[in-house]
Amino acid sequence: MRDLVWDGYRNARDLGGLPTSLSATGATRFGRVARGPRRELLTETGWRDARGWGLAAVVDLRCAHEVGVRDGDPVVAPETLDAVPVVNAPTEDQDDPEFREICFPILDSPEYWRHNWRILPHLVLATLTAIADAPHGLLVHCSAGRDRTGMISALLLSNAGVAPAVVAADYAESVRAMAGVTAHAQHDRQAAWGTEEVDSWIATTAPIVEDVAADVDAAFATIGADADLRSRLRDRLTAR
């Protein structure tokens, strides 16, 4: 039920259906937030599928220079695209010298997440605020839907009371979904990976994701998110 079948769009999942004691249903709620890769991969049918799920808005985590149609992307009518509002809320400033030095070598690893919100807390705070302000039926995406989207999803799920091991399993799903896929990004070493590389990577990185999720209070403190913002983000995934 969590996997979303939107035409042309792999690695799309609803953040609902994950166990938490903070929801009356015992699980995060469906139809509130979805995660995925670059929206330009959606076909005309895929956009209809997404609207059928309840898509009402998009928060795009990419830098401005990454946004737009590329060769090979499906042709979609302008009125289809205009029907869903998009907020660009990048988590990265790729011109920041410290970010470039520390994060560029590890951008496909959750190892960079803590550095991202330490170096650029105002950007991550703006991203989380955009998510809190958006309507239900929100798609959050980056390029692959794995790294930046994985980082934000980990913060949202951990803040909603989802256990660290479950947060790490959600990250691992995206690694598996995007391995061997080249359409989402121009440079991604994981696009050439097979099962052995993926299994080895998950074994190495899952503990990193679990540590981040277990220390979510420290993450939000570094980002500068106050109690009200955290409550609004939590309610998005748990409240009636």
Rank of each mutant, 00 (worst) to 15 (best):
V5F: 14
Y9N: 05
R10P: 04
N11P: 15
N11R: 03
A12V: 09
R13C: 12
D14R: 00
G17Q: 09
A24F: 00
G26K: 10
A34F: 07
A34I: 13
R38Q: 02
R38W: 03
R38P: 03
L41Q: 10
T43L: 09
G46N: 02
G46T: 03
W47P: 05
R51N: 04
G54E: 03
V59K: 07
A64G: 13
G68H: 04
D71I: 11
V75Q: 15
V76G: 01
A77D: 15
P78W: 07
E79S: 07
P85V: 12
D95F: 06
P97H: 06
F99I: 11
C103M: 08
L107G: 06
Y112Q: 15
P121W: 10
V124G: 05
L125I: 02
L128I: 07
D133K: 09
D133N: 10
P135T: 04
S143Y: 03
S143D: 05
D147H: 05
D147K: 05
T149C: 01
N159S: 09
G161R: 08
V162L: 04
R176V: 12
M178Q: 10
A191C: 00
A203I: 04
D215S: 14
V216M: 11
D217T: 10
R230L: 15
R234W: 00
D235T: 14
R236P: 06
T238F: 10
